[in-house]
Write a protein that binds this DNA or RNA. Structure first.
Length: 462
RNA sequence: GGCGACGUAGCCAAGUGGUAAGGCAGAGGUCUGCAAAACCUUUAUUCAGCGGUUCAAAUCCGCUCGUCGCCUCCA
C-alpha cells in the first residue's frame, strides 16, 4: 500500500490529520484481517513551495524540509499513527526518478525541451481514466497558462531545469530537479514494484497528481499501476474546503491544544472516510462527549468486574447482553469489511454500550454469567481499540483526565470547595435547605457541580 | 463553461431494492428535601422536490432546486 504523504513546507492541518488517521486505520485493519502489509508513505522534500519558503526565510530547501519532516513526525506520533513500513524521501530517489524519465523518453512518452522534460499526455490513451474526464473538456475550461515548450498544454513536467540559486541534481538533461508526481511513481516502484494493490491519498490528489502517476508508471512499465485507489474526503469549515489558499485552516498543533488526540481521531472516524467532514469546535465537543460516554460505560464495567460476584439473580437484560457481546466483533468486522465503514463500526459500539449500561444498572453485582459476558466485552474492546487506535487509556484515567482539563480553569481552590461542602452538609442535616441551596448555587456559579450520593457529596468541574 | 459528488430528525451521521443504526441536543422516568449529575426510556409513517420503474425505492431511472468539489498548489 502506498499513500501520498506531505510536501514538507509548513505545519500540517486537520486535513492532513484526517488523511493520516484514515489510512492508519486502514493499515491497522488490513493487518488485523490477516494481510501482510507493506505500507509506504513518502515525504516530498523537493518542490517549488519548499524552495519559495526557503527563499522567504533566507535559508536553503534542506533546512525547511528537515524542519517540517520533524514537525510532521511529531504531529502524527501525537495522533497515535503507527509507523509505516517505509517512509522514503524524494531526494533519496533522484536516481530512480532519472531512470524512469529516461525510460519514458526512450519509449516515446516524454520529450526534452530546453532542459525540462515533459510527459506527452496524448501518447497515453488511458490518460484521465481515474478522474473520468477527457482531454478536450479539460482544455476547454483550462486555466493552465500556455507554455510554448509543451506540445500539448496538458503535458506536465517530469524534470525541471534549475534556475540560478535553486537546488539541483545532475541529469542527462542538465542540472535540475524532479517535477511533482514523478517522485511517487519512483518510490512506489522501488519498494512495491511496478504493480501493487492499494494507493491512497486525499481527494484533491485524484487530478492531477494520481492521474499523472498512473500515466508515468504505466507508460514506463507497461502494466497496471494500482489495483485499488482510495481517496479520503476533505475536512470542511462551514461546508467549505479547508485550504491554505482560503486561509481557513487549523493546524494539528492548534487543535491538540484544545482537544485530546483521541477526541480528534474519534471525530474523524465518526464519518465515512470518503464523506466530507465539517470541522467546528461544537462538533469536536460533541465527539468528546460521545467518546467519554463510551469510557464511562467501560469504567462502570471495570468497576463491576472489580467488585464481588453477585448471587445469580437473573436480570432481563442478561440474554441481550450476552448476545451483543458475542456479536460485537463480527458486527465490527462486517462494518469494516464494507469499505472501512468506521462510522458504522462506532454505531455498533454505541449500540452495545446502551445494553451494557442497562445491564449494569439492573444487575448491580453481576453473577458468573454476567461476568463472563463483561469480560468478553472488555476483550473485544481491546481488540477493536487496537484497530481504530482508540480506547488506549484506562477508563478511570480518561475520565480523570477530562476532569483535570476542566479543573485547570478553576477560580476556586479545592479547600474552599470542601469547606463549603461541609457547611452545606451541616445545613442539610439541620434541614436548612435555604442555606444549602445557596451554597450549591454559589459553587455552581464558580463552575463547580455538586454530586450528591448516599455516600456523601463529591464535586466536579462543570 | 466542462466534469463529478452530495442533499437522511434541531445539529452530526450510518444505511445502494425488503420496509429508517448511532451520537449530540430535547422530552419523560428512576434517584433526590428540591435539584444537579448519572443511568434508563423516548424522539423521522419518512429520507430536498416532482415524476417514473418495481409486489416492494432513502436506495434504480428522469427532471427540477440547493450545496460542494475538481478543471491551478492542495490531504
Amino acid at each position: 500500500m502506498y499513500v501520498c504523504g506531505v510536501t514538507v513546507y509548513d505545519y500540517c492541518h486537520i486535513g492532513h490529520a484526517r488523511a493520516g488517521i484514515v489510512f492508519d486505520v486502514i493499515y491497522r485493519y488490513l493487518q488485523y484481517a490477516g494481510y501482510e502489509v507493506t505500507f509506504v508513505r513518502n515525504y516530498t522534500d523537493i518542490d517549488d513551495k519548499i524552495i519559495n519558503r526557503a527563499n522567504q526565510e533566507g535559508t536553503d530547501y534542506r533546512t525547511i524540509a528537515d524542519r517540517y519532516i520533524a514537525a510532521f513526525d511529531e504531529d502524527m506520533d501525537r495522533l497515535g499513527l503507527k509507523k509505516p513500513t517505509l517512509e522514503p524521501k524524494a531526494t533519496d530517489h533522484i536516481d530512480d526518478i532519472i531512470a524512469i524519465i529516461k525510460q519514458l523518453i526512450a519509449n516515446g512518452h516524454a520529450y526534452e525541451a530546453a532542459g525540462d522534460v515533459y510527459f506527452a499526455v496524448e501518447t497515453f490513451d488511458d490518460y484521465l481514466k481515474l478522474s473520468k474526464r477527457n482531454l478536450e473538456d479539460m482544455q476547454a475550461g483550462a486555466r493552465v497558462e500556455v507554455d510554448e515548450r509543451k506540445r500539448n498544454p496538458m503535458d506536465f513536467a517530469l524534470w525541471k531545469g534549475s534556475k540560478p540559486g535553486e537546488p539541483w541534481w545532475q541529469s542527462p538533461w542538465g542540472q535540475g530537479r524532479p517535477g511533482w508526481h514523478i517522485e511517487c511513481s519512483a518510490m512506489s516502484m522501488r519498494f512495491l514494484g511496478p504493480s501493487f494493490d492499494i494507493h491512497g491519498g486525499g481527494k484533491d490528489l485524484v487530478f492531477p497528481h494520481h492521474e499523472n502517476e498512473i500515466a508515468q508508471s504505466e507508460c514506463a512499465n507497461g502494466c497496471q499501476f494500482v489495483k485499488y485507489w482510495l481517496h479520503n474526503g476533505f475536512v470542511n469549515i462551514n461546508s467549505e474546503k479547508m485550504s491554505k489558499s482560503l486561509g481557513n485552516f487549523f493546524t494539528i498543533r492548534e487543535v491538540l491544544e484544545l482537544f485530546d488526540p483521541e477526541v480528534l481521531r474519534f471525530f474523524i472516524l465518526q464519518a465515512h472516510y470518503r464523506s466530507p467532514l465539517d470541522y467546528s469546535d461544537q462538533n469536536l465537543r460533541e465527539a468528546q462527549a460521545g467518546l467519554t460516554r463510551i469510557y464511562e460505560a467501560l469504567a462502570a464495567l471495570d468497576e463491576a468486574l472489580a467488585g464481588p460476584a453477585g448471587n445469580g439473580t437473573a436480570t432481563p437484560t442478561l440474554a441481550e447482553l450476552q448476545d451483543k457481546a458475542q456479536q460485537l466483533l463480527p458486527r465490527f468486522k462486517e462494518a469494516m469489511d464494507d469499505d472501512f465503514n468506521t462510522a458504522q463500526a462506532l454505531g455498533v459500539i454505541f449500540d452495545l454500550v446502551r445494553t451494557l449500561n442497562r445491564y449494569l444498572a439492573e444487575a448491580g453485582a453481576p453473577d458468573a454469567a454476567g461476568r463472563q459476558a463483561l469480560t468478553a466485552i472488555r476483550d473485544a474492546f481491546a481488540e477493536i481499540g487496537q484497530v481504530l487506535g482508540l480506547f488506549h487509556s484506562t477508563p478511570a484515567h480518561w475520565l480523570a483526565q477530562r476532569e483535570a482539563d476542566k479543573a485547570a480553569q478553576l477560580t476556586i481552590t479545592p479547600a474552599e470547595i470542601e469547606a463549603l461542602i461541609a457547611e452545606r452538609a451541616q445545613a442539610r442535616t439541620d434541614k436548612n435547605f435555604k442555606r444549602s441551596d445557596e451554597i450549591r448555587d454559589q459553587l455552581l456559579a464558580s463552575n463547580i457541580q455538586l454530586l450528591d450520593t448516599p455516600q456523601g457529596t463529591s464535586w466536579k468541574v462543570k
